[in-house]
Design a protein around this nucleic acid. Structure first.
Lengths: 185, 185
DNA sequence: TATTGTTATACTCTATAACTATA
DNA sequence: TATAGTTATAGAGTATAACAATA
């Protein structure tokens, strides 16, 4: 976190070739993220309080509960974004809690099949009403049927658009290469 | 979280006393959180790559940049949700990076006034175009003017509704009380 | 006594790289 | 060689509680 070149040149405004967001877009963006952040916070509170689960853990369980059969680790990770090791960590916790089981796949010996247990299903079932209640109270109470329709429609298009986006080479700088330190002795 | 279908277990539906979400609401909710999660991830990547800032840090700086004068720690924390100590931690990082300064308030000797430095403003200015570009590419490209209007309107109402919500006593269980261990000897 | 902010500490989570084993 | 998953480890972030200073 370095304030690289703090040269005070006001280069924020649209002189860069790429058009900037207009105020309405910026406003919509800010209010969207703010609202979702508030919602997420409440949801996390509820899941933690009633089920001792983090949001990610709930997502993983819900995903498994909705899936037809088993999922491999990779399939399970897909869409929950983070690294393999992160999933291994969470799966370890969930397995220790008796909410899922892991077993080798018969099709591909490298793969691990993840299965939700009855306990896992029960927990999801137990948490879902409260989850839904929070969501409704926070998100849907102020919305009309028409709003709901619009919101679902809009965000579906946005989501599909996002999913279709290529990984985008536009990541200009890699974190920091960090030369490998020579091993001692 | 595939937005689409509700769920096979059926235990979400209204047998609990409180009305459950209907499939369309559930779908809208899932797709909303999924889309925002994807967006946030991209935004975080960009801020990290181009400015070595976390999203929270950027939010804090942006908040300061927009504020008329100084903000106290408490004012700054408000809306970014987390604990005082968390803010102190982040403020420490930002101050060390020369992006903000902290000074005692003349009005209230207990309070600390946070001020964004020129370097901080410059950094925000430098990051904003890319930030905006990611946001536009991910969020606004697939949206019409009409969509944008609806989205802003809807989420503003949602946000206001959320902000107006009382802290809600409905937090049934506190984390875990954990009895204080008696100090040894 | 209540409030503002800091500190100390413990814990959770995520990411990177090295590793094993299968394909 | 590439892929699936795990492990080790390090780092960032957050929360809790105890604390000091001020209102």
């Amino acid at each position: 976190m370095s304030a690289t070149h703090p040269d005070g040149t006001g280069d924020a405004s649209g002189t860069e070739g790429d058009a900037a967001l207009d105020p309405r877009q910026l406003g919509a963006y800010f209010v969207l993220t703010e609202a979702v952040s508030l919602l997420q916070h409440q949801v996390e509170q509820q899941l933690q309080a009633e089920g001792d689960l983090s949001y990610v853990q709930f997502q993983l369980l819900a995903r498994l509960a909705h899936a037809p059969g088993h999922l491999t680790m990779t399939q399970l990770a897909d869409g929950v974004v983070y690294s393999r090791s992160g999933l291994t960590y969470q799966a370890g916790l969930l397995e220790k809690a008796g909410l899922i089981t892991r077993s080798p796949s018969p099709d591909d010996e490298r793969a691990t099949l993840v299965t939700i247990t009855d306990g896992g299903r029960a927990l999801v079932a137990r948490l879902l009403p409260g989850h839904v209640q929070v969501t409704r109270r926070m998100l849907f109470d102020p919305l009309s049927d028409d709003d709901l329709h619009h919101l679902g429609d809009i965000m579906t298009r946005v989501r599909d658009h996002m999913r279709a986006q290529p990984p985008r080479s536009a990541a200009p700088r890699k974190r920091r290469p960090k030369p490998p330190a020579p091993p001692p002795a």
